[in-house]
Simulated scan of single mutants.
Amino acid sequence: MRNSQLFNIYTRKNFSSKEEVLSFLESEGHKLTGIDSSEFKTKLFQREEQGSIEIAPGVLLPHFESSSFIKSKVLILSLKQAIQHWSKEICNVKLVIVILLKTEEKKSIKQAIMEFTRKLADDKYLNKLMNLENKNRNEGDDFL
Rank of each mutant, 00 (worst) to 15 (best):
D142Y: 11
Q46K: 12
P57C: 07
N138W: 06
V96A: 08
Q111M: 06
K110Q: 10
R137Y: 02
F116L: 03
Q111D: 11
H85I: 11
Q81V: 07
F40R: 05
S67R: 14
N3K: 05
K124H: 03
E19S: 12
E49K: 13
S87F: 10
V98H: 09
E139A: 06
V96P: 10
I99W: 07
Q111H: 11
K110L: 11
S4K: 00
K124R: 08
K18S: 05
V93H: 04
A56F: 06
G34P: 07
L77T: 13
L144T: 07
G51W: 09
F64H: 08
N127F: 10
E105P: 09
I70P: 02
K71C: 10
H63R: 12
V98D: 06
K13A: 01
K128Q: 12
E26T: 15
K73N: 06
F143C: 01
S52D: 08
E48F: 07
I9T: 03
H30P: 07
Q46C: 03
T103L: 12
E19T: 09
K41N: 13
I90T: 11
N134F: 02
K110H: 04
L101C: 01
P62Q: 10
R2P: 00
K13S: 00
S66V: 08
G140F: 02
V59K: 11
L95C: 04
E89F: 10
T42M: 15
S17F: 10
F24S: 02
H63M: 02
S67Y: 11
K13W: 00
I90Y: 04
L77I: 08
R118N: 14
F40I: 08
E39T: 10
Q5C: 00
I99G: 09
T42N: 15
M1S: 01
I53R: 11
K73V: 09
S78D: 04
Y125I: 04
I35A: 06
L126P: 08
H85K: 15
K80V: 05
V93I: 09
L77G: 05
L44T: 15
D36F: 09
K124N: 04
T103N: 11
F45M: 13
S16V: 07
K80H: 14
D142H: 13
K106E: 13
Q81A: 07
Q81N: 15
R47I: 05
D36I: 09
E133G: 01
E20S: 06
L132I: 10
Q50T: 13
L144M: 15
E39V: 09
F7D: 01
K80Y: 11
I53M: 14
L100C: 05
F7M: 01
H85P: 01
L32N: 01
F116W: 07
V21H: 02
D123C: 06
L32K: 03
I83H: 10
K119T: 04
D123T: 14
L120G: 08
S72Y: 04
N134W: 01
I55K: 07
L132G: 03
S66N: 07
I109V: 14
K71Y: 01
I113F: 00
V21G: 03
V93D: 05
I99S: 12
D141I: 15
F15R: 03
S4A: 00
N136M: 13
N3Y: 00
I97F: 06
N8F: 08
R2W: 00
A121I: 11
D142W: 09
K107I: 03
N14D: 08
S67L: 11
K73Y: 04
N8V: 00
Q46R: 09
H63A: 04
H85T: 12
K18I: 02
